[in-house]
């Protein structure tokens, strides 16, 4: 992944608009948060392979990172804290935000094909 270039990512977001696409959306502070710090809360949510069709989407800069909102006919997909992106060899737009130690905090990914459990082609 590399640092988000807003105009580049905006173009990818536009390309997926008005198509049936699959979304991976996730936020996490890790399963061990309250193990290492009693006062911390474990919070997290993910949705994998939600099928949506968005009218349009926008990426907005917040200075340090970015927010992305996708407008659906009946709702929204939203993520905050995104800083890195990759348009991978499977034609998927991957976006993520990491903390100082490089741990993932948030991810929003868009693909025309379902996200797989184990990728079929790049078997080790």
């Amino acid at each position: 992944m590399k640092a988000i270039e807003q105009s580049v990512v905006q173009e990818y977001i536009n390309k997926f608009a008005n198509k049936d696409v699959y979304i991976h959306l996730e936020t996490t502070n890790g399963a061990y948060a309250s193990h290492f710090d009693e006062k911390a809360y474990n919070v997290g949510a993910f949705i994998r392979n939600a099928q949506v069709n968005y009218q349009h989407g926008k990426i907005v800069s917040t200075g340090g990172s970015f927010r992305v909102g996708l407008k659906l006919d009946l709702g929204w997909v939203y993520a905050e804290g995104l800083s890195d992106f990759e348009f991978d060899e499977h034609g998927r737009l991957l976006m993520a935000g990491h903390d100082r130690e490089g741990r993932l905090m948030v991810a929003l990914e868009i693909s025309e094909k379902p996200f797989t459990h184990e990728a079929e082609e790049d078997e080790s």
């Binding site: 993910f46 490089g102 993932l104 459990h117 184990e118």
Partner: peptide
Amino acid sequence: TLGEMGRNMGSPVFANRETLYN
């Protein structure tokens, strides 16, 4: 599992959510 939902992506980061399992 393959720990594919792990938060650590390497340091410095070299994996992403979709390549981590590999």
